[in-house]
C-alpha cells in the first residue's frame, strides 16, 4: 500500500503525476480525474484563472476527503493535488487519483472526492476574462452546511 498524497502546489500538474504514486500490486484499478482550465464561462471568453488557497487547511480538508472515501469504499490509496497561482487555458487545476482492488470503488470514490473538494476545501478561483473584467468566483454557500 502506497502513502496518500494531499498537496497544494504552485508548479504545473502533469496528468500522470499521481498514477504511480497510488498504484500497488494488489490494485486492479486506478481512476484519475483532472480539472482543466476552460476557455469560457457560459460563453464569456476566459483569458486565465488565478487560484488562491488557505494552504494548510486545504491540505487538511483534502486529507479528510481521502479518509471519508476510505470509509465508504474499499480503496487502496488516494492522491489529490490542487494548483494555485496563475493558470492558463488547458492547464490542470486539480488532479485526483484513487486506486482500488476493483474498478467500481475507485470510480465512485473519485466522483465523490471531486464533489466534496468543491464543497469543503478552502480554495478560490478568480476568472480573468478576455474583455478585461475579472472576479472572484464564489461557490454555493449552502454547500458548506455539510462540511
Amino acid at each position: 500500500m502506497a502513502d496518500d498524497v494531499y498537496k497544494i502546489q504552485d508548479n504545473e500538474i502533469k496528468s500522470d503525476a499521481l498514477y504511480n504514486a497510488v498504484l500497488a500490486d494488489s490494485d486492479g484499478a486506478v481512476t484519475t480525474f483532472a480539472g482543466v482550465v476552460r476557455d469560457n464561462t457560459k460563453g464569456r471568453g476566459t483569458s486565465y484563472l488565478v487560484y488562491d488557497a488557505y494552504r494548510d487547511m486545504a491540505e487538511k480538508k483534502m486529507r479528510e476527503i481521502g479518509d471519508e472515501v476510505k470509509e465508504k469504499w474499499e480503496i487502496d490509496c488516494v492522491g489529490i493535488l490542487h494548483r494555485v497561482g496563475r493558470l492558463e487555458i488547458g492547464e490542470i487545476s486539480v488532479l485526483i487519483a484513487i486506486s482500488s482492488p476493483h474498478r467500481k470503488a475507485s470510480l465512485e470514490a473519485c466522483h465523490y472526492a471531486i464533489d466534496r473538494l468543491k464543497q469543503t476545501v478552502p480554495i478560490w478561483k478568480k476568472e480573468v476574462w478576455t474583455d478585461g473584467g475579472e472576479a472572484w468566483i464564489e461557490g454555493d454557500p449552502s454547500a458548506l452546511a455539510s462540511r
Partner: peptide, 10 residues
C-alpha cells in the same frame, strides 16, 4: 482565525 468566502476550487 480565517474568514472563508464560499469556496470555488476544482
Amino acid at each position: 482565525v480565517a474568514f472563508i468566502p464560499p469556496v470555488s476550487g476544482g
